[in-house]
Simulated assay, not measured.
Amino acid sequence: MSEKNFVDYVKICCRSGPGGSGSAHFFRDKSTPNGGPDGGDGGRGGHIILRGNEQMWTLLPLKYRKHVIAGPGGIGKGNNQTGAMGEDVILDVPLGTVARDVETGEELFEISEHDQIEIIAPGGRGGKGNTHFKSSTNQSPRFAQQGEEGVEEWKILELKVLADVGLVGFPNAGKSTLLASLSAAKPKIGNYPFTTLVPNLGIVGYRDGRSFIMADIPGIIENAHEGKGLGLRFLRHIERNSVLLFVVPADSDSIKEAYQILLSELEKYNPQLLDKQRILGISKTDLIDDELKKMMSDDIPKDIPSIWFSAVTGENILQMKDLLWNTINS
């Protein structure tokens, strides 16, 4: 997934259509020169609608579309004819798109299914025609209701990547190398922090033609929940992963401490993330020998399944696939 093409955050101004005005019309024909009111209602203004599209992976189409404007409702007509509805604007978005209010930051809804439709900016209601205002004391109302104004509001759209397995680790922990070895994905790999700037998705082939999706997500640093580093941009993508694979390099000062820092950042961002199934992968084992592995065994957390691996030499890569598949389907 190209960094230029992957967009997971946009802010757009949504202007829904105003409702059409009702009609103050009276029925007239050759035999009825003084007929009663028959003014129709105004049409509803156009909505701005988000629609889930499972074929999309990015919010790129909305990056440069800062203003979205729906059509106005038509005015009512005589003979109780309702005005035409304003033209709706339908914006296709990837699954996992969350809509928020700019002012409050409140989450309005999440698009999670294909063809799911949500109104992000409702059109104004059409005004009532004069036929609604006829009464025993006013048989010929000469007024009608104006249409309701549409809304003009700024909205934030955020994308959360959907994957079976999400890779959690510090920058340069070996996540991209692992994804490249398990799948056909070609993430950018380098020996420096923040090589990965956008989520990369890979389809991991398994036995008998089965497969699962793995996401390499920008590396986390301490206090990422406060927005440091890639901060919140990283953390929201973790929310939609079924299994979290924590990747800690074998040459870390303390594997247990590194894992606890990662776990703490997830808990501070969203405590519900701790309910997800977790696996600890100790990467870069090609840098140490078996004797050192044995010495480091006491530094591995005992409350989580763990596996040593090297994406460079292929050590335990097949066993990693088995562990991930069994965890996803447990």
Rank of each mutant, 00 (worst) to 15 (best):
residue 1 M to D: 11
residue 5 N to T: 11
residue 9 Y to R: 12
residue 9 Y to F: 12
residue 11 K to W: 05
residue 20 G to L: 01
residue 22 G to K: 00
residue 24 A to H: 03
residue 27 F to A: 09
residue 28 R to D: 10
residue 28 R to P: 07
residue 30 K to R: 14
residue 30 K to D: 14
residue 30 K to I: 15
residue 31 S to D: 14
residue 33 P to W: 13
residue 34 N to Y: 15
residue 37 P to I: 02
residue 38 D to N: 10
residue 38 D to E: 05
residue 40 G to T: 04
residue 40 G to C: 04
residue 42 G to R: 02
residue 42 G to F: 01
residue 45 G to S: 06
residue 47 H to Y: 13
residue 48 I to R: 02
residue 49 I to R: 08
residue 51 R to H: 00
residue 52 G to I: 05
residue 54 E to D: 11
residue 59 L to E: 07
residue 59 L to A: 06
residue 60 L to Y: 12
residue 61 P to V: 04
residue 62 L to K: 05
residue 64 Y to R: 15
residue 67 H to P: 00
residue 79 N to W: 13
residue 83 G to T: 03
residue 86 G to Q: 00
residue 89 V to S: 04
residue 93 V to S: 00
residue 95 L to H: 00
residue 101 D to N: 12
residue 108 L to G: 10
residue 110 E to N: 08
residue 113 E to T: 09
residue 118 E to H: 12
residue 119 I to P: 04
residue 120 I to F: 08
residue 122 P to R: 15
residue 126 G to Q: 02
residue 130 N to M: 02
residue 138 N to G: 06
residue 138 N to S: 10
residue 142 R to D: 10
residue 144 A to L: 03
residue 144 A to F: 01
residue 148 E to Y: 07
residue 148 E to M: 10
residue 149 E to Y: 12
residue 151 V to Q: 10
residue 152 E to Q: 12
residue 154 W to D: 14
residue 154 W to N: 14
residue 156 I to M: 13
residue 157 L to A: 04
residue 157 L to M: 05
residue 159 L to T: 05
residue 160 K to G: 06
residue 160 K to V: 05
residue 164 D to E: 04
residue 166 G to H: 03
residue 167 L to R: 01
residue 170 F to V: 06
residue 173 A to W: 01
residue 178 L to I: 10
residue 179 L to I: 05
residue 179 L to M: 00
residue 189 I to H: 05
residue 189 I to E: 04
residue 192 Y to V: 03
residue 193 P to T: 03
residue 194 F to V: 11
residue 202 G to V: 03
residue 203 I to L: 13
residue 207 R to L: 15
residue 207 R to Q: 15
residue 210 R to F: 09
residue 211 S to H: 13
residue 212 F to D: 04
residue 213 I to N: 07
residue 216 D to S: 02
residue 217 I to L: 08
residue 219 G to I: 00
residue 221 I to H: 01
residue 225 H to G: 07
residue 226 E to F: 15
residue 235 L to Y: 05
residue 240 R to A: 08
residue 244 L to Y: 00
residue 245 L to G: 03
residue 246 F to L: 04
residue 246 F to M: 02
residue 247 V to F: 01
residue 250 A to I: 09
residue 251 D to K: 07
residue 251 D to W: 06
residue 255 I to T: 05
residue 256 K to A: 14
residue 258 A to R: 06
residue 260 Q to L: 13
residue 261 I to W: 03
residue 263 L to Q: 12
residue 267 E to A: 14
residue 268 K to L: 13
residue 269 Y to C: 07
residue 272 Q to G: 10
residue 277 Q to G: 12
residue 279 I to V: 07
residue 281 G to C: 11
residue 282 I to Y: 01
residue 284 K to R: 09
residue 289 D to K: 01
residue 291 E to M: 10
residue 292 L to Y: 11
residue 292 L to F: 11
residue 299 D to A: 08
residue 299 D to S: 08
residue 303 D to G: 08
residue 304 I to P: 03
residue 304 I to Y: 09
residue 305 P to I: 06
residue 309 F to G: 01
residue 311 A to L: 07
residue 312 V to Q: 10
residue 313 T to M: 10
residue 315 E to W: 09
residue 317 I to N: 03
residue 317 I to R: 01
residue 318 L to T: 13
residue 327 T to M: 08
